[in-house]
Simulated assay, not measured.
Amino acid sequence: MEYFEDLTVGDTDAFGSYEVTAAEITDFAERYDPQPFHTDPEAAADSPFGGLVASGWHTAAMTMRLLVDNHLADGAARGALGVDELRWRRPVRPDDELTVTTEIVDKDDWDDESGLVSVAVTTEAGGEEVLSMVALVLYERRSHL
C-alpha cells in the first residue's frame, strides 16, 4: 500500500494494455455521446475523422479503468478533486491498444489525514499520445493510521 509519504515528485510508472473495440466505441457513444462519428461507421467515414472514433469522454473512462486496475489499486488513494489540463491529442480508433504512463509532478499538504498529489497522466495508442491530463488525487497519510 502506497501512502502520501511514500510518493515522491518525479516518480514514474508505465502500465496497461487495453484493446478498444468498435462495439465498445458505439455502445459508449450511444449512451453518452451520440454523435454520428462515434455511433455510425458509415457516417464516420464521411466525417473529418474518416472513420469511427471513440468519444474523448470514452477515452478518459478507459484511461481511468487502467489507472484503477494498475496504479490506484495498490495505493491509499481517497478519491480525486478533479483534473487539470485535460487534452485529447488524437482520436482513438477501433483496435487501438491503450497504455498509460504517470508521473508525480507535485505534492502538497491537504489536512491531517490526507495529502494532495498531482499526477501527470498520458495515454498512448501505437506510441502516439491520445490523452493527457493532470489528476489531483488525495492520498491517505500513513501518519494518520
Rank of each mutant, 00 (worst) to 15 (best):
K107D: 03
A22I: 08
L116G: 02
V92A: 04
Y18H: 15
D69K: 14
V134W: 08
D109S: 08
A45G: 14
D11H: 13
A73W: 10
A120M: 13
F28R: 00
L138P: 07
A14Y: 13
I25Y: 05
H71I: 07
W110S: 04
G51P: 07
L136F: 01
L52E: 07
Y32H: 09
W57Q: 10
A77Y: 11
P94E: 07
Y139L: 12
D33T: 03
V117I: 07
T122M: 07
L72S: 04
L138K: 13
S118Y: 10
E85F: 01
V119T: 15
T102L: 06
H58C: 04
D111A: 02
R31E: 09
T12G: 08
R142P: 00
I104P: 13
T59C: 04
E42H: 08
E24F: 01
A60L: 06
M62D: 03
E19K: 14
N70E: 14
V100W: 04
G115D: 03
G51M: 09
D27K: 06
R142S: 11
P94F: 13
S17C: 08
A23Y: 01
D11G: 05
W110K: 10
A14S: 14
P36H: 12
V134M: 03
P34G: 02
D112G: 06
L67P: 10
T123R: 08
L67R: 10
G16C: 11
S47Q: 08
Y32D: 00
Q35T: 08
D33H: 05
G56S: 05
D69M: 12
D109F: 06
E5A: 01
D109P: 00
L86I: 11
V83C: 08
H144Q: 04
S17G: 15
G115F: 09
D96M: 04
E113R: 15
G50D: 12
D27H: 04
E129S: 15
H58L: 09
F15C: 11
R90Y: 09
D111M: 06
D74S: 13
W110P: 00
E85D: 15
V68G: 09
N70T: 05
F4E: 00
D108W: 05
V68S: 10
V83M: 15
T39D: 11
S132N: 12
Y3C: 04
T8W: 02
T39S: 03
L131K: 06
T21Y: 03
D46W: 05
A60V: 02
S143P: 00
H58N: 04
Y32V: 00
D108P: 00
A61F: 02
N70Y: 13
R90M: 14
A22Q: 14
E24N: 00
A125Q: 10
H58M: 06
E24L: 00
L138T: 02
V119S: 02
G79N: 05
M64F: 01
G56W: 11
D109H: 07
R90C: 10
D112V: 12
G75P: 01
